[in-house]
Design a protein around this nucleic acid. Structure first.
Length: 888
RNA sequence: GGGAGGUUAGCUCAGCGGUAGAGCGCCUGUUUUACACGCAGGUGGUCAGAGGUUCGAUCCCUCUACCUCCCACCA
């Protein structure tokens, strides 16, 4: 820790703080200063440990929401905490091009201008997106700056930057060469509105109320025909078989026969497929539509069935569906097919059926299983090492329970469809020649690698956004080049993100990191919850959206950060309400006012904040002991990612111990009237130390206000960010001072609530006696020393150390027998309050006595517990006796 | 259909084998010269229900009820 006393003053700032706390008046100034002085860049000797994080790059779709603010706050708390501890901290900023999401935003914008992207053309459209991106990036950057994020802006990256695009091509080419990327015709998830394939993860399953239709197909030589069940009758136009289970006696008579597809008239073989057919479901007969159902497609492959595409990429029926249906929307076609079936008396039954239907994550359109040629990543070989890395503990999840979710997904992972029929994104580095060959290459080839043809066209598709995101922890450092940054800063340390992108991003980064660099991209993943307001998801329709910038304007960035950190418990929800923000602002105000008070004491001469070597009094020793404990607590909790508990620890130290306790105790000493100059100096030094250490402990959470106050207290502008982080100090730990001062505080509280019990005003004189015989020698000695302070805080009219006089209210407080009295007799109301306390005591005494009479308890409970129970019983009995003697 | 998590003070949430906690709210008092975004005191909980393990359970186990979320190709 730097020696504050020896620091030269670099500014001539006034030592006063404005009377009103106005965060807006200094926040931007401090950010600009930190940035100008390069505080966000890694610095310090190369030998110091480093701490590296990459930001989860926000989408350039618009602006950040409060959930981003949560994640970035937690990261910044870590970054600032580590930086103050002397780490070389690097936190890399950047944004994600977010292919499908951003393209949608621009399409919507164009639509509002009455323009379709197709009329604009690919090149012009992409240019429009770039223009949007530049604006969105600035907005996002500003938001993070307002929040105070100590990101190294000199290293800002974007997933479509040339070097990151290069990394994408390298990754693709390498995987292709390894046989881990393949191209093929399969049934994929297709969004008819977006006009692209999407991955399994981008399909959101929702329960819908639908119908299950039973349709009778004619079967040659079988009068009864075959009844099949389907939720999607329109797809029957593309049926190319019926399937039965080989072991199902109900359908055995269909074996080897041929069915006739209603409406169309096509002959359908009846196949036996134990994988496709579940004997327990429906009629045991399944219509097989290889072009419009992934399972049917697989079955079709097994049995060599044709795939007839009857629904096109726009979700309208194709020519194959027949002239009656061609051009109809899939749902209109369904209606029409049902009418026709009903007319032909083939619709055997229609029943309500609830089932899960896939919807597009982006636009909520019902996803269509669609047969098309796409690119895929063969994922199992990548998943296996990633599973092992977590099993081995090379990557740790916090909270650890997420590992289970991770394993469950990874162990059942399916190949990843990575091609998207979009315009915004990384073009797939595959080139088709006019002979139908494919050349995969990082650079645009001049000739086909197979036939040498010079007529090549690049594949029109782009890659799934997450294909580039998965490379982020190393592509930002220049991979595949072996850059210095890559060597120095990779692998990173901690990744902080919401659990909602565990599969989309975190799992894929682990896979990619291991595969391409041989190292896990980080050793710890902290998954935080999602922000809820009043237990509800934020949504514009509910009107409970908290916009981070608005919140910062209203409460100050520090309050927003503190509230977020304090709310970040371990659960899946982070509950945030306006009142919490207000509470955090109140805390910042409290700190501000306490600092104003302290600075008022420092006017003539700035204390060095070095209480060491002074003759410290009990309250000084108490608060330093508490300060040390708080410092230890904050670091311990941060190390566990318990931001809420760390925030709580510093909050309660500053507010309830430093402000409510210590400052009130030392006011008389500081005012000059109440003490010797040496005593005053001890108090000033202690107060200065508590204040500066509190500022430092709080800085990761509230960087702006702490820096603002620090400048006034310490006299150096903008240096708190790089000052030391307070440590636990065993030499300050003082159990005796803690015991004695806490006894003092308990006595003060007892006197105050005695006034309440007796309906006395806060100024009504109270006499307090402390029974010498009741107390430990040490505490008694300390209380004797603290007597003037006790009288002052409790506003006693007299304090004496003797047995309580007749007629006083007796009690035992912190093990000390006391007598309390007012100059007037107790009323009956007063007495009934005592009676209530007595009956509560009796209750507890009885239960403890029962416990202590139980031989099993005495036998089996640990001796310490038994002893503790005994002591507790004695205490209660003393207290009861004391109260009863007065109540009588 | 699998899996995970939850049910603790009026609200939002911590705690998790040995006397129930915080913030906010509420009540009472209070312009004590840092702060009314304050100070002081107080009210408020059969820790979802039922069993079990234990000397002892809010905390561990089982079941039940209700709620959340994730995963899933049952036509």
């Amino acid at each position: 820790m730097p020696e504050r006393a020896s620091l030269p003053e670099t500014t001539d700032a006034s030592r006063r703080l404005e009377k009103t706390f106005d965060p807006a008046s200094f926040e931007r100034r401090w950010y600009a200063l930190w940035e100008a002085e390069g505080r966000f860049q890694p610095s310090g000797p190369a030998s110091s440990p480093r701490f590296v994080m990459v930001i989860p790059p926000p989408n350039v779709t618009g602006r950040l929401h409060i959930g981003h603010a949560l994640g970035r706050t937690l990261e910044d708390v870590l970054a600032r905490w580590k930086r103050m501890q002397g780490y070389r901290v690097l936190w890399v900023p950047g944004t994600d091009h977010a292919g499908i999401a951003t393209q949608m935003v621009i399409e919507r914008k164009l639509a509002s201008e009455g323009v379709d992207r197709r009329t604009l053309g690919r090149e012009a459209f992409v240019e429009r997106v770039w223009a949007w991106k530049r604006e969105a990036k600035d907005t996002i950057q500003n938001q993070m700056k307002r929040l105070g994020c100590s990101l190294d802006w000199t290293r800002e990256r974007f997933t479509l930057d040339p070097d990151l695009s290069r990394a994408v091509r390298r990754a693709f080419v390498q995987l292709y060469g390894e046989g881990l990327i393949y191209r093929g015709r399969y049934v994929v998830n297709w969004c008819p509105r977006c006009g692209t394939a999407v991955s399994d993860l981008e399909v959101v399953h929702k329960e819908v109320n639908g119908k299950l239709y039973q349709i009778r197909y004619d079967v040659s030589g079988l009068r009864s025909g075959a009844v099949v069940a389907t939720t999607r009758p329109e797809t029957m136009l593309g049926d190319t078989a019926l399937a039965i289970h080989p072991d199902d006696p109900r359908t055995a008579k269909l074996r080897g026969k041929t069915a006739i597809l209603p409406i169309v008239g096509r002959e359908l073989p009846i196949i036996e497929d134990p994988i496709l057919v579940d004997r327990a479901f429906g009629t045991g007969i399944v219509k097989v539509t290889p072009a419009h159902d992934a399972n049917d497609f697989a079955s079709g492959q097994r049995h060599g069935l044709a795939a007839v595409v009857v629904i096109g990429p726009d979700a309208r029926m194709t020519k194959e569906a027949g002239p009656d249906y061609e051009g109809l929307d899939r749902f209109e076609a369904r209606k029409k097919v049902l009418e026709r079936l009903a007319a032909e008396n083939r619709l055997v039954a229609t029943e309500d059926h609830r089932y899960a239907l896939g919807h597009c994550q982006r636009c909520d359109t019902i996803i269509e299983p669609y047969l098309s040629t796409q690119w895929f990543v063969k994922i199992k070989p990548l998943a296996e090492p990633a599973i092992r890395a977590v099993e081995r503990g090379d990557v740790v999840f916090v909270p650890e329970s997420w590992a289970k979710t991770y394993f469950a997904w990874m162990e059942n992972i399916h190949d990843w469809c990575i091609s998207r029929q979009l315009w915004w994104g990384h073009r797939i580095p595959a080139f088709h020649c006019d002979n139908g060959h494919i050349t995969v290459s990082e650079e645009t080839p001049s000739a086909c690698a197979t036939c040498g043809s010079g007529r090549l066209e690049q594949d029109p598709d782009v890659l799934d956004t997450w294909f580039s995101s998965q490379l982020w922890p190393f592509s930002v450092f220049g991979w595949p080049e072996e850059t210095t940054d890559l060597k120095v800063f990779y692998p990173t340390d901690v990744l902080v993100t919401g659990y909602d992108i565990l599969f989309f991003w975190v799992a894929r980064m682990i896979m990619a990191g291991l595969h391409f660099t041989g190292k896990a991209p980080f050793h710890t993943v902290h998954l935080h919850g999602l922000v809820r307001v009043g237990g509800e998801k934020m949504s514009k329709t509910k009107g409970n959206v908290i916009d981070p910038l608005e919140a910062i304007d209203e409460f100050g960035a520090d309050a927003v950060r503190f509230a977020l950190a304090a709310a970040a418990a371990t659960g899946p929800n982070v509950s945030l309400e306006k009142q919490r923000l207000a509470g955090s602002r109140a805390f910042a105000t409290k700190l501000w006012n306490a600092s104003r008070f302290a600075l008022g004491q420092f006017e003539e001469e700035r204390p060095a904040g070095s209480p060491e070597g002074r003759r410290l009094e009990l309250p000084d020793r108490w608060i330093l002991s508490r300060l040390s404990a708080a410092a230890g607590e904050v670091s311990r909790k941060l190390a566990l990612f318990r931001f809420d508990e760390a925030a709580q620890a510093i909050y309660s130290f500053v507010w309830h111990e430093l402000c409510d306790g210590y400052i009130e105790m030392v006011k008389p000493r500081l005012s000059g009237s109440g003490g010797q100059p040496a005593s005053r100096e001890a108090a000033r030094e202690t107060l200065a130390r508590c204040l500066t250490d509190s500022l430092a402990l709080l800085h990761p959470f509230m960087p702006f206000v702490t820096e603002e106050i620090w400048e006034k207290v310490v006299g150096r502008a903008g240096t708190l960010i790089v000052s030391g982080f307070p440590r636990e100090r065993p030499e300050w730990t003082d159990a005796r001072a803690q015991r004695s001062v806490e006894a003092l505080r308990a006595l003060v509280t007892r006197v105050r609530n005695y006034r309440g019990e007796r309906s006395a005003s806060p100024t009504e004189p109270v006499d307090l006696t402390i029974d010498r015989a009741s107390s430990e020698v040490e505490t008694l000695a300390d209380l004797t020393e603290l007597a003037p302070l006790l009288s002052h805080l409790a506003r006693l009219s007299s304090l004496s150390f003797e047995p309580p006089p007749e007629g006083s209210t007796r009690d035992v407080v912190a093990g000390i027998g006391v007598g309390l009295s007012l100059s007037r007799p107790a009323s009956s109301a007063d007495r009934s309050r005592v009676a209530k306390t007595l009956s509560e005591l009796d209750e507890e005494i009885r239960s403890l006595a029962v416990k202590l009479r139980n031989p099993s308890f005495l036998d089996r409970a640990p001796a310490a517990v038994v002893e503790k129970t005994r002591r507790r019983l004695v205490e209660l009995e003393q207290r009861r006796a004391a109260l009863a003697s007065a109540g009588a």
